[in-house]
């Protein structure tokens, strides 16, 4: 290094460090939490996924054996995949549509908008909780509220929706779709960003409300739709509570609500196969990563970024 370079390098390292100490100090609580509670477990779970660790006994190195078994010799893994993908493919679009429809309705400049916004957001706050999942079980049970209403209104004797294999998963899709609040809030913010004069220009161009929605609103909202879709997809892959509570942790009836995370949970905490469960977790990470990457690659074909 030349002398000129040295003089350009600014104050010595120790002085710079001292001046930045405050910043690192403020960062420390988060950093500690991240390293101890997130990064550490993640790394150790990857290690465990390469062992046969159970609750008893030492963790023996088995290499890729867990992964090979997942891919070649685990029918419940494929069941869980099928259930989870069905759930993702149904609940995400449904939730997006609900969220967007309500956001569009709320964007009309209603009186008392903030109240409605809070009311519609409420399910998202409480919807993921155990209490609501329990309530859901009551509503869709054989003698539940839904069947009582159906009986009273139409004289229809409904089945037990949650214990019927052909409907059980769909009750969980409904429960998920009901929690559209946070996506709705983001949609609402996105709708507010669309300049009013765009719609005025379109109305002079003779575009009907629906044409304005499909030709102006939707395309201009694609960045927000994209964001919401990615977040909701990741969330849906990780869905756990509702299936656990509604099926009493079994994933039943006959594994029709065996979400991936529920299966993972059973392997770990019912069967005490922590090594295998860790491998399952890492497979889920890879699946989510692939899905997210695909979403981003597709974005350039349908997401319109302004400026």
């Amino acid at each position: 290094m030349s002398i000129a370079d040295a003089s350009n390098a600014g104050p010595p390292l120790s002085v710079r460090l001292r001046s930045q100490l405050g910043g690192y100090g403020f960062l420390l609580p988060w950093l500690l939490g991240f390293v101890v509670l997130t990064l550490g477990p993640a790394v150790s779970s990857f290690y465990l996924s390469l062992t046969d660790f159970g609750l008893m006994g030492p963790a023996n190195w088995v290499g890729a054996e867990n992964y090979v078994r997942i891919a070649s010799d685990d029918p419940r893994f494929w069941t869980a995949m099928r259930v989870t993908f069905t759930f993702v493919l149904l609940s995400v679009p449904l939730k997006l549509m609900f969220a967007l429809a309500i956001a569009v309705a709320l964007n009309k400049g209603l009186r008392g908008l903030t109240v409605f916004r809070a009311i519609f957001y409420l399910p998202s706050l409480v919807g993921g909780s155990v209490a609501i999942a329990v309530l859901w079980r009551q509503v869709f049970a054989g003698d539940g509220v839904l069947n009582q209403v159906l009986a009273a209104l139409f004289g229809y004797e409904g089945p037990s929706w949650i214990s019927n294999p052909s409907t059980s998963l769909y009750t969980l899709v409904l429960l998920a779709a009901w929690q559209f609040g946070s996506s709705m809030i983001i949609f609402l913010a996105g709708l507010r960003q669309i300049p009013q004069d765009m719609y005025e220009a379109a109305s002079i161009d003779g575009a009907s409300r629906s044409r304005q929605f499909f030709k102006i609103t939707l395309p201009l909202l694609t960045p927000v739709i994209f964001f919401n879709a990615v977040i909701l997809t990741i969330d849906a892959f990780k869905a756990f509570t509702s299936a656990f509570v509604v099926s009493d942790g079994s994933g039943g009836p006959i594994d029709t609500t065996l979400f991936y995370t529920l299966y993972l949970y059973q392997e770990a905490f019912t069967n005490f196969r922590f090594g295998y469960a860790s491998a399952l977790a890492w497979v889920l990470v890879v699946i989510i990563a692939i899905f997210t990457a695909l979403s981003f690659m597709s974005a350039k074909y349908w997401v319109h970024y302004d400026d």
Binding site: P195, D197, M198, E200, A201, A202, S203, I204, D205, G206, A207, K215, I216, P219, L220, T222, H304, D306, D307
Partner: peptide, 18 residues
């Protein structure tokens, strides 16, 4: 607006960005 036989140029131009 569309039935009045008018066209309007806006201050912000209001072009459809997409």
């Amino acid at each position: 607006a569309s039935e009045r036989g008018i066209a309007m140029v806006f201050q912000s131009y209001a072009l459809y960005p997409h």
